[in-house]
Amino acid sequence: MGYQWDFATVLSYWDVLLGGGLATLRLFAVTVTLGLGGGLVMGMLRHAGSPVLRYPATAFVELFRNTPVLVQIIWFYFALPVLVPFDISPFLASAMGITLNTIAFSSEIFRGGIQSMERGQWEAAKAIGMNHAQTMRRIILPQAIKRMLAPLTNRGIEVFKMSTLASIVSYPEVLNQAKLIASMEYNPIESYTTVAIIFFVVLFPIVQATYVLERRFGKSD
């Protein structure tokens, strides 16, 4: 024992951490929007549609679900520029890896939620002349989304934490900045602990809020 904890040094770099926090939020905002939006589309493709749509969608999901995001980010950053005629920024490489992974995982949530709806709901909508898209938008999704709220919240938390993987290609998000501070001040324990605290302080209230939301949704059933 006898270790002298020194968080003061870490906090003296608050502007660096703040910059990292903003970069993390930027990456999160982009990946969670595109990832869940894309997941919804992919989930619907996998649920219905002709085999022409379904098989490629399934192949996509399995590819990105069964490979590590970290490897995907590295691959997009280093390998993809060999294949395409432009440079890939750390942000782009990270956003691609996390987004595609999120699409793959959340599409399963959407597909499951859509499939959990009773057949009678589809039939009733069909019987009043609704087409597939109208039924999805007006009848199925508004009900299924309530059932999907908990797993989607989980996914959102996972996306937020996945943003730290972007440090592998030196995207200046929180973890990357903490790494910099640690390498300058030789205080990795305090630096990384601070990162953990930052994540907890941001995520915990959000999760609590979704519990409240879930309860409210549950009531109207």
Binding site: A127, G129, N131
Partner: peptide
Amino acid sequence: AELCKLRTRIGMVFQHFNLFPH
């Protein structure tokens, strides 16, 4: 599209009601 249009002209009621609960 033809079938959707046709179904608007034929009402159907089911055994299990199938009202939209939301």
